[in-house]
Design a protein around this nucleic acid. Structure first.
Lengths: 191, 191
DNA sequence: ACCTGAACACCGTTCAAGT
DNA sequence: ACCTGAACACCGTTCAAGT
């Protein structure tokens, strides 16, 4: 006798992300997620192999949302300013979804191919700005430098590493200006 | 009737760190740690309030080790080169202890004062080089910029974000050179 | 003083049984 | 087809009882 689905993968991922943001990763139990979508825990195993597969799906969902935010960032003021806007959009999203952000670079057990792909896709908007600016062939290294700074700053900020003194927004602006300035002077490393 | 301790805080933290590096954070159970120091799980609660207190102590231990490595990095070739050496020492330590490194900026529940202090102390060697170079008063912001890049690069590298193509060591060197170059041109932001 | 076995609540996961 | 209760293994944590 057939039976109609009472939930969906998207519902489950959304529920897990909501619990993650509200109460942290430890609170994302199979029972809590199941309860939120109106089902019992064992039903989740029809759609996700185990809890870590579900958490990976949450990370993919977060990467996609971040990628959409980056793609929507304002453009047209020249590459340097466009990169500043993209960096601001990145930071703003991380502030809105800090625990989702924490998941993006966490150690999710073995390297998960799905999150690797999602990560690569989310970086495309930035890669394309840098590519238009400096030439497609030499875009990867300077993009990595920019993204490393942006991720590092945001990650330390969210971890509370900047809590003691200093104007964090001013540090962000100076840092971004310095990094973007370095890109302007960029010469690809030999090799 | 008195009884002699069969272990110590330091033993327990060392055991937890060893398990962390070998098998990951999920494997750091109270029972696994207790077994490794030759005791039963309930005994650990005489010395640590709960598992998260033990994990915090592991993070503090890792911060202290990282700080020692930074303090031991070679010096005397001028501030720019000294910062390059410190950055290399930081990255090398993170490669040697990747899962400990992952703990340093993880979301350990509520902001833990002990880890905040340890984090601040571990940054002191770098802060002092930058302070000698640019003046004590204006050292915080440029130090943050350097540390943000270094942490971001290492963290993405360990997360596997740089797996696709490109010479990662060359990217590291170019990035560090660019950031140190920015420090050379540093002018404190207004405010 | 420190250690332990036993117990409790809770979680991930499996599976036979329901519709 | 999908959902569930029941069951199992495992974990964090407490505590009365041991030495």
């Amino acid at each position: 006798v057939p039976a109609n689905p009472r939930t969906s993968n998207a519902d489950i991922v959304a529920a897990a992300r909501a619990i993650l943001e509200e109460h942290g990763l430890d609170a994302v139990t199979m029972q809590a997620v199941a309860a939120r979508v109106g089902v019992r825990a064992p039903s989740l195993y029809k759609r996700f192999e185990d809890r870590s597969a579900l958490i990976s799906a949450v990370a993919v969902d977060a990467f996609e949302e971040l990628g959409r935010e980056l793609a929507r960032a304002p453009r047209g003021e020249g590459p340097a300013n466009d990169l500043r806007r993209a960096a601001d959009a990145y930071r703003a999203w991380a502030h809105r979804a800090p625990r989702s952000y924490g998941l993006l670079f966490a150690d999710l057990g073995a390297g998960v191919a799905a999150t690797d792909d999602a990560r690569a896709r989310s970086a495309e908007p930035v890669l394309s700005i840098v590519g238009d600016w400096l030439g497609i062939g030499s875009a990867i290294q300077p993009t990595r430098m920019l993204v490393a700074f942006v991720h590092g700053f945001v990650s330390m900020e969210l971890a509370g590493a900047f809590r003691l003194g200093g104007d964090v927004d001013a540090a962000w602006r100076s840092g971004i200006d310095a990094v973007v300035g370095s890109l302007e002077r960029w010469r690809p490393a030999p090799g």
